[in-house]
């Protein structure tokens, strides 16, 4: 009987109807103002400040110059001297993000495919686990891998105790590990290294990959691949000729989204990447909140990151539209 409580008497007059209309208008007005102030103004501020100038020994002043952008692409002293330091940082942003996102999608794909074939209730349990891991702060994840990869405890220690290190030395692979920077003279050494960076970044977005692929894969029509099987196609042939082509677009869309997300990752890079391979996100941080205190230059880098991300998102959007049109 309690549910009936919310069906209630409501007085209803013509005056109320017209008031309803103006109320809707007012609602639109308030929401538009909110969105513009909070979702647009911050971006505009970043863009405007990126044209400002830093004043030595002070903060910065408004202005309109392209010197921050010039500095980003060719350095301050151009044309006398050219430096690609900041472009190189952007390059590393892309490098880490591309490898990590592709790796995450490639490993998440078979997992999600298997997941969608489980019972609905079992799927829900897995989704709880994956969502929990997805929401784990980058800080916690970095902490976990940092402990796992650290020299005193974690995997290197495990390698030594179990004799794996000795075995690697015996078969001669230890030298190869040293060549690529994953070992010191005594034992394997996983951080700082590209390996640790990419591993952690992939781990970071792996649950996202599952969640993003899940809708597309759970809508795959099983009768399609069953039809192919009745026509004599092997399991692998079915995957290659039926499953993969039908999820090609969501696959690419997911990779793009993860890539954009990873472009801005900060904690992982600052902990695991070697100092010569820092990225634009780290540079933005140090310019705005860190030691450099050069907000305009940091903003310019943020704008460039934003533009890179927007271009990728736009392509992702096109892919989605194409996927939906089919």
């Amino acid at each position: 009987m309690t549910v009936a409580e919310d069906i209630d008497v409501a007085a209803d007059s013509p005056a109320k109807a017209t008031r309803g209309l103006t109320r809707k208008g007012a609602l639109y007005g308030v929401l538009s103002a909110l969105m513009v102030v909070f979702c647009v103004v911050p971006f505009i501020l970043v863009i405007v400040i990126s044209f400002g100038r830093k004043v030595e020994g002070a903060a910065w002043v408004w202005g309109f110059s392209f010197e921050n952008y010039q500095r980003f692409f060719v350095g301050t002293l151009w044309p006398d001297e050219v430096t690609f330091l900041y472009l190189q940082q952007l390059g590393y942003s892309f490098y880490f993000a591309i490898i990590a996102s592709v790796l995450a999608v490639l490993t998440a794909l078979p997992f999600t495919l298997l997941l969608t074939r489980l019972k609905r209730s079992t799927q829900a349990i897995w989704l709880v686990f994956i969502l929990s891991s997805l929401s784990m702060s980058e800080v916690f994840i970095v902490m976990g891998w940092d402990i796992l990869l650290s020299n005193n405890s974690g995997l290197p220690k495990l390698f030594q105790v179990t004799g794996t290190t000795q075995w690697l030395k015996d078969v001669g692979w230890f030298q190869s590990l040293r060549d690529i920077g994953l070992a010191n003279p005594r034992n394997v050494k996983f951080k700082p290294s590209e390996f640790a960076t990419i591993l952690t970044m992939s781990y970071l977005v792996w649950p996202y990959a599952v969640i993003l692929l899940y809708p597309a894969l759970s809508r795959l029509d099983p009768s399609l691949s069953e039809a192919a099987r009745t026509m004599g196609a092997s399991r692998w042939t079915v995957t290659r000729t039926v499953t993969l082509p039908s999820i090609r677009l969501p696959l690419m869309g997911t990779t793009l989204l993860l890539f954009v997300f990873l472009l801005g990752s900060y904690v992982t890079i600052s902990v695991f990447a070697t100092p010569d391979k820092q990225t634009t996100a780290v540079a933005i941080y140090s310019n705005i909140r860190g030691s450099n205190l050069n907000a305009p230059f940091g903003s310019a880098q943020a704008v460039i990151l934003l533009i890179s991300a927007s271009i990728c998102l736009y392509f992702g959007h096109l892919l989605n539209r194409k996927a939906e049109a089919r």
Binding site: F43, V46, L263, G264, Y266, I284, A302, L305, S310
Partner: peptide, 8 residues
């Protein structure tokens, strides 16, 4: 967008 941009 990358969170660092909206953060800034």
């Amino acid at each position: 967008v990358p969170p660092i941009v909206i953060g800034v």
